[in-house]
Amino acid sequence: MTTLLISHPSSLEHQTPEGHPERPDRIRAVEAALEDERFALLQRVEAPEATLAQAELCHPAHYVAAIAAASPAEGLVGIDADTTMSPGTLSAALHGVGGAIHAVDEVMAGRAANAFCALRPPGHHAERERAMGFCFFNNAAIAARHAQRAHGAGRVAVIDWDVHHGNGTQDIFWNDPSVLYASLHEMPLYPGTGAPSERGEHDTIVNVALRAGDGSEAFREAFDIAVLPRIASFAPELIVISAGFDAHWRDPLANLKLRESDFAWATRALMELADRHAGGRLVSILEGGYDLEGLAKSTAAHVGALMRG
Results as ranks from 00 to 15, higher is better:
Thr2Cys: 06
Leu5Ala: 14
Ile6Thr: 11
Pro9His: 10
His14Gly: 01
Gln15Phe: 02
Thr16Lys: 02
Thr16Gly: 05
His20Ala: 02
Asp25Arg: 08
Arg26Lys: 03
Ala29Pro: 03
Arg44Val: 12
Glu46Ile: 02
Ala50Asn: 11
Ala66Thr: 04
Ile67Tyr: 01
Ile67Cys: 00
Ala70Val: 00
Glu74Lys: 13
Asp80Glu: 08
Ala81Arg: 13
Gly88Tyr: 04
Ala92Val: 05
Ala93Ser: 10
Ala109Tyr: 02
Ala115Gln: 10
Ala118Ser: 15
Arg120Glu: 08
Pro122Arg: 05
Arg130Tyr: 02
Cys135Ala: 00
Phe137Cys: 07
Ala141Arg: 02
Ala141Ser: 06
Val163Ser: 04
Asn167Cys: 01
Asp171His: 03
Phe173Asp: 05
Trp174Arg: 06
Pro177Ser: 11
Ala182His: 01
Gly192Ala: 09
Arg199Pro: 05
Arg199Ser: 12
Gly200Val: 03
Ile205Val: 10
Ser216Met: 08
Arg220Trp: 06
Val227Lys: 11
Ile231Leu: 15
Ile231Met: 13
Ala235Pro: 01
Pro236Asp: 11
Glu237Pro: 09
Ser242Arg: 02
Ser242Gln: 03
Gly244Phe: 06
Ala247Phe: 04
His248Gln: 05
Leu253Asp: 00
Asn255Arg: 15
Leu256Glu: 10
Lys257Asp: 09
Leu258Ala: 04
Phe263Leu: 06
Ala266His: 08
Thr267Met: 15
Leu273Cys: 11
Leu282Arg: 09
Leu282Met: 15
Ile285Met: 08
Glu287His: 03
Gly288Asn: 05
Lys297Tyr: 13
Ser298Glu: 10
Thr299Gln: 10
Ala305Glu: 14
Gly309Cys: 13
